[in-house]
Design a protein around this nucleic acid. Structure first.
Lengths: 340, 340
DNA sequence: GACTGGCACTCGTTACAGTCGAGTGCCAGG
DNA sequence: CCTGGCACTCGACTGTAACGAGTGCCAGTC
């Protein structure tokens, strides 16, 4: 592992040049564009070592070098500083997010903002229900045998679902059930609700039992089991920048992956290490995305994390810039959520 | 305009062959694959006329012919019968839509189904608020100065919005306002609400006036002015079929257009003529989509129309098949909605 | 021992020429 | 009006050659 400082500098130069020009970079061009203080021949020797170690490779014998996924990894971990945002970018973020009126609105604005700033595909997860608490449950009678169940979470998320009752119920019954349900569930974390819901059914007065049973089923189904997570996406048109050189010529697998919510959630949803996460090329678990990189982080009010957001693009992306932007946007969104 | 029957048959044959093979079709291949009863030379003469009239063209001098947008238009209008769906397709539709539990669920299933059946990009508009009526308005107190306003439309759509009140209100006040608002607005078409909301403010008891004023602002803003329309999209990966031959090599403009809700609404939202609408290539008003065609139709319970749905693909698409599928799906969705 | 200049070599790119063949337009004849 | 025949066009493909960016290696220098 004889990677002295100069070799690392060479790798950094290669990554930077390749990211900006999108062309394999040769030894001569390198010494011209960076002050390395040595001759091309020396650089070539260093390159040979870097290639042997698997950090760069040659697309074909007589071409320049290109970073490998491993090379990008080293670059991200040890050779790059997170770029501070320009004042213009900061202003853009504020201008974009101020005036959001709604959680939906916040999420949509955020995802478009991210796509625009990074010029990549942006993904934002709605605040996860699993990490939210129930603020209020509302039952709205639609007819005598139908209710609309509306759940409002502390994160601002609102989920609703139609409930088909086994038999007709009176307005008073609905009022009673509403009270019981809220007494039991308000304030509880969504992930803690199943036993509480169970208790509700058991403790319900006999007259309300059938209604409560149906309601319990729907509650568990909607809030815990079912899709539960939502995702917003923007900037897919950015995939076509870099004229088909990225993504080895086919957007197909990428577009397919982006249509799968499950995939996106796996990519940006795992927020245990609250730090920014970077997945480069084949570090990714999905074959469809082995030509892509993902920069993601968690966001939430204060220091808690309620969801993830990030960007996806070619492995040849501006990591320092994208990391900075993703972090900054996540912080702003967190502040915005904290205000509610 | 000497387009006798045989020339029309030739045009039809050209369209069909080109759609299925994706290659310019020559006179010899035509007579072999279709029983035209004449020789290639005759077909060539017909082709010359068709080209002169602008229905077909030659990509380059020594190649076969390809339909123009105008040719597709004639084909759609006069030369094609809507293909009846296969039993398998009918079953697929039913299987897919049965079990939908929610309006959201219906829309998502529908859009995926459409994308899958047609192998194109599918677009489904949520039931338009403008064409819906208010079923119920619910006010959920979040704190003493905050309400969650939830509107449930007869189409099943649910919209919510946080309302920041000018001052604290009591639970009784909320109950009163809820009653007043529902008395006035329940059953009204959304498009008729502005004067009613105005009246609400004027008729409100003095004590409730400030709260009602704020509420009125939010109501008008959310339900009438603001984004109001929602769209679901699926199948963008289908754009990559036909390996970049369609769309003259770049998906860029298409993907950009698909990100603009306004554009999509214009495409599938105008449902005045309740019949199926077909927009071919440059008939389309958006430059970005001049290489694409759109097949769309309205849907709704019974004979009313509450929204639009459709598919978008290359001009070289299977029009009869897509028209049939779009219509069938719209009908099934309409039936589904009618059940609520 | 590390760096450098020089040099032979590799191999993709480009240009050019030649062939092939699908497809056409036109014309004379049935 | 249709048909067979024929000359023509022109893109697609193939093969060859020249070019040049970039490399690896080696001998020489500090």
């Amino acid at each position: 592992m004889g990677l002295d400082d100069r070799k690392l500098a060479v790798l950094r130069a290669i990554v930077e040049d390749y990211v900006s020009t999108q062309e394999p970079v040769g030894s001569k061009a390198l010494v011209e564009r960076h002050q390395l203080g040595v001759s091309p021949a020396t650089v070539r020797n260093d390159m040979a070592v870097l290639e042997e170690e698997g950090y760069i490779r040659q697309p074909h014998t007589s071409a320049g070098r290109v970073p490998t996924d491993r090379g990008y990894r080293l670059f991200v971990d040890r050779l790059s500083r997170v770029k501070p945002l320009s004042p213009a970018e900061r202003r853009a973020i504020e201008r974009f997010l101020v005036g959001a009126v709604d959680l939906d609105d916040v999420v949509h604005r955020t995802v478009r903002l991210l796509a625009q700033l990074t010029r990549q595909v942006a993904v934002v997860q709605y605040p996860s229900l699993a990490r939210s608490s129930v603020r209020h449950l509302e039952l709205v009678p639609i007819s005598t045998t139908r209710l609309m169940l509306v759940m409002i979470a502390d994160t601002g998320r609102v989920e609703q679902r139609l409930v088909e009752l086994p038999g007709p119920v009176s307005a008073d019954d609905v009022t009673d059930v509403r009270r019981l349900v809220n007494e039991k569930l308000a304030g509880a974390r969504l992930s803690d609700t199943p036993p509480l819901v169970q208790a509700l059914v058991e403790e319900a007065p006999a007259g309300l039992r059938p209604m409560m049973t149906t309601l319990a089923t729907v509650l568990l189904e909607t809030l815990v089991e079912r899709h539960e997570e939502r995702i917003a996406l923007a900037g897919t048109a950015n995939l076509t920048r870099g004229g088909l050189l990225d993504f080895q010529g086919s957007l197909r697998p990428i577009l397919e992956a982006l249509e799968e919510e499950v995939v996106l959630l796996k990519l940006i949803g795992e927020t245990e290490p609250s730090a920014t996460r970077v997945l480069i090329g084949d570090e990714n678990e999905f074959d469809n995305l082995r030509a892509a990189s993902v920069v993601s982080t968690g966001y939430g009010p204060g220091s808690t994390i309620v969801g993830g957001l990030g960007v996806l693009g070619p492995t040849r992306m501006d990591y320092p810039g994208n990391i900075a932007t993703v972090r900054a946007v996540a912080r702003y969104v967190g502040e915005l959520l904290a205000q509610n």
